[in-house]
């Protein structure tokens, strides 16, 4: 009996990853059909953009990096940190996944993209769920 449950346990431990970041912002990614799977999870750094869940942080879209709110100016430092945490050989394979709420305006997204271009993080991924896009 316990052997079987242990087997289950290991199975789940292997196929899942522990949730790393607690989101302070609301991120409902848009839906798209032509999505690709992100490969090599360890080589992905995440940038979250959305409206804060708690009203005291304002109602306009904010950026979250790791476990805290950030501004556009923090992006370059964040990418540098992410790079230093990886092996030298893997650094150029680093992908930046942008998990952005669908109601965000493109202004802040463009700013983030410009920062990424400046620091040379060219590989990006617009996070989206697979499904039929909603008609508006």
């Amino acid at each position: 009996m316990s052997d079987i449950i242990f087997m289950f346990l290991f199975f789940f431990m292997v196929i899942t990853t522990i949730r790393e970041t607690t989101l302070f912002i609301r991120v409902r990614v848009p839906q798209a059909t032509e999505v690709q799977k992100l490969e090599k999870k360890s080589l992905v750094s995440f940038i979250y953009i959305g409206v804060p869940l708690q009203g005291k942080y304002g109602t306009s879209s904010r950026i979250q990096l790791n476990d805290q709110f950030a501004t556009v100016d923090d992006i370059q430092e964040f990418i540098t940190q992410e790079r230093e945490a990886r092996d030298e050989a893997d650094r150029r394979l680093l992908t930046t996944s942008m998990k952005i709420d669908k109601e965000t305006r493109m202004g802040i997204v463009s700013d983030v993209k410009q920062e990424l271009r400046k620091i040379g993080a060219f590989k990006i991924n617009y996070s989206a769920a697979k499904g039929k896009a909603s008609k508006k």
């Binding site: 789940f12 196929i15 899942t16 990853t17 522990i18 949730r19 990614v29 798209a32 032509e34 999505v35 690709q36 799977k37 992100l38 999870k41 992905v44 992908t95 996944s97 942008m98 993209k113 990424l116 271009r117 040379g120 993080a121 060219f122 590989k123 990006i124 991924n125 617009y126 996070s127 989206a128 769920a129 697979k130």
Partner: peptide, 16 residues
């Protein structure tokens, strides 16, 4: 505590 995350998205390359 865990989620089977299937991270998906549209991959793009930014210009220098």
């Amino acid at each position: 505590t865990s989620s089977i995350n299937t991270d998906m998205g549209i991959t793009r390359r930014l210009p220098p």
